[in-house]
Amino acid sequence: MKTPKFWQQRTLWSYLFLPLALLYRGIASLDRSIKLKKMQTLPRPVIVVGNINLGGTGKTPVTITLVNRFKARGFNVGVLSRGYGRKTDALLIADTHHSASDLGDEPYLIYQKTGVPLAVHRNRYEAGVALLKQHPEIDLFICDDGLQHHILHRDLEIGVVGKQGFGNELGFPAGPLREPISRLNKVNFIINNSGNLDLKKYDFIPPQFTLQSVLNEAINLKTGKAKPLSHWQNQGVSAIAGIAYPEHFFAMLRDHNIDVMGYGFPDHHHFTKKDLATLDTPLFMTEKDAVKCQDLALDLDNAWKVPLETTLPEALIDAILKTLNLDVKPNSKTHV
Results as ranks from 00 to 15, higher is better:
Thr311Leu: 04
Asn257Thr: 01
Asp155Ser: 15
Gly58Gln: 13
Leu12Tyr: 14
Met252Ile: 01
Pro61Ile: 03
Gly195Arg: 14
Leu36Val: 10
Pro266Cys: 08
Ala130Gly: 04
Asn123Ala: 06
Asp144Cys: 08
Arg254Met: 03
Ile64Leu: 08
His97Tyr: 14
Arg44Lys: 10
Leu16Cys: 09
Leu22Gln: 09
Val46Trp: 02
Ala72Cys: 15
Ser33Cys: 05
Val336Pro: 05
Thr334Pro: 11
Asn220Gln: 00
Gly58Trp: 09
Pro228Ser: 01
Lys37Asn: 12
Ile243Leu: 02
Leu54Cys: 14
Asn257Arg: 10
Glu137Thr: 04
Gly264Ile: 03
Asp289Ala: 02
Ser230Pro: 02
Leu30Tyr: 08
Leu279Tyr: 01
Pro282Tyr: 01
Asn325Gln: 10
Pro228Gln: 00
Thr286Glu: 08
Ala290Gly: 06
Leu16Asp: 11
Leu276Gly: 04
Asn168Pro: 09
Ile181Pro: 04
Pro173Met: 07
Leu66Ala: 11
Met1Leu: 08
Ile317Arg: 02
Ile243Ser: 01
Phe70Tyr: 05
Tyr84Ile: 07
Gly50Ser: 09
His231Leu: 01
Glu247His: 12
Arg69Phe: 08
Ala127Ser: 12
Thr11Cys: 05
Arg32Trp: 07
Leu30Glu: 00
Tyr111His: 10
Val62Ala: 06
Gln134Ser: 11
Phe189Cys: 06
Leu152Asn: 10
His268Gly: 09
Gly26Ala: 00
Gly115Gln: 04
Val77Ala: 06
Lys71Trp: 01
Leu300His: 12
Leu109Gln: 12
Glu247Ile: 13
